[in-house]
Design a protein around this nucleic acid. Structure first.
Lengths: 331, 331
DNA sequence: TTTAGCACTTATTATTTCCAAGTGCTAAAT
DNA sequence: ATTTAGCACTTGGAAATAATAAGTGCTAAA
């Protein structure tokens, strides 16, 4: 139903609009398609009827609809090579072996935002396939212990707990021993129930004031399970986009970036790099989110780029793929 | 040089402007001062000549200058009691003993931003008066160890390190023992030199591949020293203020919030609650920063509220004082 | 199918007009 | 010596008007 020239017109309109943020008129495409503006207009009308294009008002040029962007992304877009200059910046991260992983991730975000002028986020969550490697309860004062949990992937979580009553050294050591004996090797998401149903019932036989200690560790562990880190870069970049030129839109998007739910919206679900346009993003109908999941020694991370729907899709996708591959190689 | 009525006029203007964000005209003060607008105008003129007031244009009402705000804050402002409703919200944090400290801090920020409609930040830095309590090197795989550092204030830092060559268990244990024997009790900011000058020279006598292990711990420690956390709440609140109604100002302030230097500008230097108006804030001439330092078991934190110069000074100050006192009591 | 031509629509921008708010100053009143 | 009434004057902002540019849809001819 959509002819070859029409496809190309759609492609041109999307790309032109991405470049300029201005509605695209029929005249501007004449030379490229070697035909009159009237011909282009006819095709545009057709594309509009099919839902790929929109007008802002009756006599304006056309802009892509969400469906139009989607079609572009799925069938028309060509992957864009990373420019020499940009590649150079990226190289500095991955060629430097000294750089530790966390820092490399942060640096990647920075460069993405720098190159694309969009906003980037990385979201880390302790993954479920960690097994408990070691538990420690370290006394700090007579009323304070620090509980430390370490997994076989090397993730460490700690929690300082004030004991409600004094507990002596021996009991702390004993508790520590029992926990280690019974819990080592347990998948992290089973620790909770094991603690409650297997350990709590018997620990009283060995340790006097077991409740305070049990609670201390229980808290440390729940800390672990809910661990979550979110790092943003270039939050202000989105404001540079001309579509956010009125204050209310800006307020709107900034508060969305601030809200807690944003995390769920951004968390990647797919190993591939995926594109969510406008409403698909569930974040804001005026933005596109491009995201992917990265698996780095035991942690699942999501990395996402947020920009206007008028995003440089090709560029961002290749860039994310490149970064994902290299981070995973490094990790 | 500035009479009693003039002081009161200044006070009224500042307070009225804080409330309405509109320049204050002479007529609006007649009833309160029981005199004609002409009289008020004369006083206003005088206050303007002394630099306490400004006009936006030749026939506008007056707004306070920075000097005016400063005078208000130093001599005219009355502390404002926390309202019953607000007090109730704050109580929920401090009366709940279950709530751990970090969470209480976050919750405080949230409530500050909620009540005041300004932006709040807390900035934590590992303080210098921590002493090393324990060091651990925990093997994860044959090429990976996690180094853990714990201070006597219960602060824990960890770092996963990939060893460049295989190291056997025994050596790891031995290194661990030596580090503990020699470092426990050392103030955290002396560990670095002690490591380099006392431990590095001798550790080779006991441990074969000491260098990799030494480096692992060295890294964990430097991680610790540079630890810094910044938490924001209500970043979008500043946009609600009418003074930020044009997009460029908004962009400007949002990028400042994003920049790294902001941390230095916000870090509190004083135990008291201090007010920095406009340029004094070194952050942006259109904002006021109210901040204080909080000392919480071994960590120095700074807590700050950022809003327009037209800030409800009294309210914010009492609120910060209240929160500071209660957090320190809890800590 | 494609194109030229034309009437029509709309956003944008500039220009003008008008009004409310508020000032400074002078001269009179207290 | 202060305070006040009165008045000319200034300014920003809102509303009204006009002019312009960009682009469309449609008809009829190529």
């Amino acid at each position: 139903m959509i002819g070859d020239r029409q496809k190309n017109i759609l492609k041109s309109i999307v790309e032109e609009y991405i470049k300029t943020a201005r509605p695209v008129g029929s005249k501007s495409l004449c030379k490229k398609f070697k035909c009159s503006s009237a011909t282009i207009r006819n095709d545009m009308l057709n594309l509009e009827e099919l839902g790929y294009l929109e007008k802002q008002h009756i006599s304006s040029g056309r802009i892509p609809s969400e469906k139009g962007y989607r079609y572009y992304v799925d069938y028309l877009m060509e992957p864009k090579k990373i420019s020499g200059e940009d590649m150079l910046k990226l190289q500095t991260i991955f060629s430097n072996n000294e750089l530790n992983l966390n820092f490399a991730i942060e640096k990647s975000l920075e460069i993405i935002s720098d190159i694309t002028n969009y906003t980037s986020v990385v979201l880390g969550k302790a993954s479920s396939d960690n097994n408990l490697q070691k538990v420690e309860l370290i006394p700090i004062t007579e009323e304070t212990v620090v509980a430390i949990v370490i997994t076989d992937k090397g993730i460490v979580e700690n929690k300082q707990v004030n004991l409600t009553e004094r507990v002596d050294m021996g009991e702390i050591t004993k508790t520590s021993e029992i926990l280690n004996k019974m819990l080592v090797g347990t998948p992290i998401d089973e620790v909770s129930s094991k603690l409650e149903f297997e350990i709590k019932p018997i620990i009283g036989n060995y340790v006097k004031n077991y409740e305070v200690l049990y609670n201390a560790f229980y808290e440390a562990f729940s800390n672990f399970a809910s661990k979550e880190s979110v790092k943003w870069r270039g939050k202000a970049n989105i404001l540079k986009q001309p579509e956010f030129s009125n204050v209310d839109d800006v307020k709107n998007i900034v508060s969305k970036f601030e809200s807690k739910e944003v995390v769920n919206k951004i968390e990647g679900t797919d190993d591939e790099v995926k594109i969510y346009i406008g409403k698909e993003s569930e974040l804001d109908e005026n933005v596109t989110v491009i995201k992917t999941k990265i698996r780095l020694n035991g942690e699942d991370m999501s990395i996402a780029v947020i920009g206007p729907k008028r995003m440089e899709y090709g560029k961002v996708v290749t860039m994310l793929e490149y970064i994902k591959d290299n981070l995973e190689k490094k990790g």
